[in-house]
Design a protein around this nucleic acid. Structure first.
Length: 826
DNA sequence: GCAAGGTC
């Protein structure tokens, strides 16, 4: 018995192939497979990812090195999925593999990723027999799948290499420019409000389109023009307005001449009568990009959000696969069946029934990209099923689009497909009086109107999508990502009507590229590189040569950019303030003892203008002064950092945060992770015990949290409330004998003590002490503390919940303080 | 902390 492994890129495809081959299997094919094998094998995609390991330090590596010296490596994109291992398990003992990855260059590339993973574990070939096969299919239909099975070929190494080259170029160029720009401008300006000033071969041209429109608006000079408007009437009819067939004229003297010619006229004669019929072509079947456009312009939904909803509708079975370039239905596509699914839908049941009874037109012939059929409703949905969310709105808009494709377009006054797409309807025109050639109308008045041309508006998202598609910037799947990127990086904002307005930062960046090297922002740069890459794919050029050649060009561009950055800087100066002039005085510097300034704009940080040093802070939170307390190690004033919703608060030393004082500390740690043996703010003094949720965290007492006292994990976001309204809470020196957590001393007011027998003071373990049992709210934090796992002291609440297999090490560091001090000081 | 391309 021989075993064949088939690998597809997504479950939907794997399943389709499984079903088709299952049906054909009985003919004369002897492939052994399991149904399960197909559908699970379908979940493999994108095994590795390029990365520049060891070159990750932004401060120590010159970005120029990323263009040449730094090695790249491929890593598994999502190590948690263990895709490589999973593939190997499936491939073990298989004799053959058939690769059903998407039929484009990216798919070809993934073929080789899969082969790299599985070939070592597959059975050795019998003699010279071929064991690797590539299925090339142009659509996911019975015929195409079956044809592909009958003409299995080989994966195309050249196409795969062209993708490798693209990945490496994008990575090196993107990282080099991004790091340089970010570091250069962030160190200089305090109010940039962007923690990352990124550059990329797709995102930068995308931004370029938005700024180009902005420039057009800015440089727009309104022009005066004139229009002649006449009103005429016949008999007792009310007057009708006539438009000028010249529309408008920009020359005052000319228009005056025309006005003079008509001024004296008393009568208007009909010169000729013509009738024109207006019809709208039915729209094409829906592909991804068109869906994004319609969703943005008609529903006001951003592309990212649209894709999320489409993805959900797809996995729930309401629509077909939402990522496709194809706008053409295969000849044998079951249009009627698709339509029948909608026959009972409350919104369009009547329309559907009429269509089914009268027969349907074949859809307009669109483009077949060979990927997936157009996005099609697969079953009827009700509002209650999908909720009255925009998901439903979105669904109905898509089903509408589907209908219109089937809809018979009738002549005359019939609304045709616009019956289900009313927003596409042709507005009714004002009825004109019947007249014939030679009829005379009385001239009521002739008016000269002076008007001004108006500037264009900001680019709409839909227009941007069209521009990106036209210039080949991004793909159907990545266009939403690029648009989202330029919003998140604070280069553009989304205004009313989903118009994209560039920010000062966005404008300055693009104008800077214009000044230094316009190619960095032109959409042509991507297509030029792709032309080169295509030569690799066609086998006409060598992978290494093309890569080297293109990198050389960008190396020169990079160095020229670095040398000319002053040109961009001049533009920055106009819009942004130097770092020394930004921010409000806050806490004192430990070196010069002057006040440092707190810069709130992203990335928030402290800056000492006397020492000309900038100190990073944790993001997504705010800092305040902490009673002018100082770090015992460097005399910097501590600041209290508070994060958003759960109110987790801890002190940190601005200096230690960037320069970890002890060997076992890393960058970015506050006092709640500091291993200082004696400092009253350190983990050693305030740490209570192992976190109840995460593996490595320690719950640290927050001495500023009273009267709603709490402790918070120093690694994850667990916050535990306890001893509410206690008058005083302190962490004691001693540890619990049972669980090694630090004991806690609590003082209550006489009047409101919850302790038994009116006692006001108690020292005990927050996890084990029965007296404390009801005073510690471990609601959020489930009972995962070592003490509550399998035996031990058991508490009343949360029994048996969330146990975790396997034990953990020592819950807390030993408290031999002087030994610790000796060991840790660097 | 950096790109773009797949997919969930």
């Amino acid at each position: 018995m021989r075993t064949v492994l088939m690998v597809a890129e997504k479950p939907s495809l794997a399943q389709a192939i499984a079903v088709i081959i299952d049906r054909l299997d009985n003919v004369n094919y002897s492939v052994f497979y399991s149904q399960e094998g197909f559908s699970t094998a379908g979940r493999h995609q994108n095994l590795p990812e390029s990365g520049l390991r060891k070159y990750n330090n932004w401060d120590k590596v010159d970005p120029a090195e990323l263009l040449s010296k730094a090695p790249t490596e491929k890593k598994e994109a999502n190590p948690k999925l263990s895709m490589v291992k999973f593939l190997q398990v499936e491939a073990k003992g298989c004799d053959y593999v058939v690769l059903w990855l998407d039929c484009d260059k990216e798919g070809e590339n993934i073929c080789f990723e899969v082969l790299d993973a599985i070939q070592p574990v597959m059975n050795k070939p019998y003699g010279n027999e071929r064991t690797v096969y590539r299925a090339k299919f142009s659509s996911i239909t019975d015929t195409d799948i079956w044809n592909a099975m009958n003409q299995l070929g080989e994966p195309n190494k050249n196409e795969a290499l062209s993708v490798d080259a693209r990945q490496e170029l994008d990575l090196r160029i993107g990282c080099a420019f991004t790091r340089f720009q970010t570091k250069y401008f962030q160190g200089k300006y305090g109010n940039l409000d962007s923690s990352l000033i990124s550059f990329g071969p797709c995102q930068t041209p995308t931004l370029g389109f938005c700024v180009e429109r902005h420039d057009k608006i800015q440089s727009f000079k309104p022009e005066t023009y004139w229009v002649i408007q006449a009103k005429v009437f016949k008999g007792k009819d009310s007057p009708i307005s006539l438009d000028w067939d010249r529309v408008r004229v920009f020359d005052r003297e000319i228009v005056q001449m025309f006005v003079n010619m008509t001024k004296t006229a008393r009568e208007a004669l009909v010169e000729s009568v013509s009738k024109k019929e207006k019809a709208k072509q039915r729209p094409l079947a829906l592909n991804t990009v068109e869906m994004l456009r319609v969703a943005s312009s008609a529903l006001g939904m951003g592309p990212q959000h649209t894709m999320q909803i489409a993805e959900r509708l797809y996995t729930q079975g309401y629509i077909s696969y939402p990522r496709t370039e194809t706008t053409h239905y295969p000849e044998n596509f079951d249009l009627k069946g698709t339509l029948r699914q909608q026959a009972n839908n409350s919104h369009w049941a009547e329309t559907v029934k009429t269509l089914l009874a009268e027969g349907i037109n074949r859809p307009r012939k669109g483009a077949d990209a060979g990927d997936h059929p157009p996005i099609t409703p697969m079953r009827s949905a009700t509002e209650s099923e999908l909720g009255k969310t925009r998901g439903y709105c979105f669904y109905s808009r898509m089903t509408d689009t589907c209908f219109c494709i089937f809809y018979v377009f009738k002549c005359g006054l019939s609304p045709g497909f616009t019956e289900v797409m009313p927003w596409q309807g042709i507005p009714l025109e004002e009825a004109l009086p019947t007249c014939e050639k030679g009829d005379a109308f009385t001239v009521d008045e002739v008016k000269l109107l002076e008007k001004q041309t108006s500037p264009p508006d900001y680019l709409t998202e839909a227009e941007l999508i069209t521009l990106m598609e036209k210039h080949g910037i991004g793909t159907d799947a990545s266009i939403p990502v690029h648009i989202n990127n330029i919003c998140q990086r604070n280069y553009v904002t989304v205004e009313n009507g989903r118009k994209l307005k560039p920010t000062n930062l966005g404008i300055v960046l693009v104008h800077g590229y214009y000044k230094i090297d316009v190619e960095l922002v032109l959409p042509t740069i991507r297509s030029a590189v792709e032309k080169q890459l295509n030569l690799i794919a066609l086998g006409k050029a060598n992978f290494h040569q093309v890569l080297q050649h293109t990198l050389d060009i960008f190396k020169r561009k990079f160095h020229y950019f670095v040398d000319s950055i002053a040109g961009m800087d001049e533009l920055m100066e106009v819009s942004f303030s130097p770092i020394a002039a930004t921010g409000k005085p806050h806490s004192r510097c430990g070196k010069c003892h002057r006040f440092m300034k707190y810069i709130q704009a992203k990335p928030s940080r402290l800056h000492c203008s006397h020492c000309d040093e900038t100190y990073s802070l944790p993001q997504n939170g705010a800092i305040k002064l902490y009673k002018e307390l100082k770090c015992p190690l460097d005399e910097f004033e501590l600041v209290l950092w508070t994060s958003g919703s759960r109110g987790k608060t801890y002190p940190l030393c601005p200096y230690c945060f960037s320069n970890p004082p002890f060997r076992d500390m890393k960058k970015g740690m506050g006092c709640n992770e500091c291993t200082h043996p004696t400092c009253p703010h350190s983990l050693n003094s305030l740490g209570i015990g192992q976190c109840v949720e995460c593996e490595t965290g320690v719950l640290v007492f927050d001495p500023n949290s009273g009267p709603k006292w709490r402790m918070a994990c120093n690694k994850c976001n667990v916050v535990v409330h306890f001893f509410e309204h206690a008058y005083k809470v302190q962490v004691a020196q001693d540890s619990c004998e049972a669980c090694e957590a630090s004991l806690v001393m609590v003082d209550f007011h006489k009047a409101r003590t919850p302790l038994a027998d009116g006692e006001t003071q108690h020292t005990g373990c927050v996890f084990c002490d029965t007296l404390f049992q009801d005073l510690v709210e471990l609601k959020h934090a489930t009972m995962r503390h070592p003490m509550h796992r399998g035996g031990g002291a058991r508490r009343g609440r949360g029994r048996g919940r969330g146990r975790r297999p396997g034990g953990r090490g020592n819950p807390k560091k030993p408290k031999d303080k002087m030994a610790a001090l000796a060991a840790y000081f660097v």
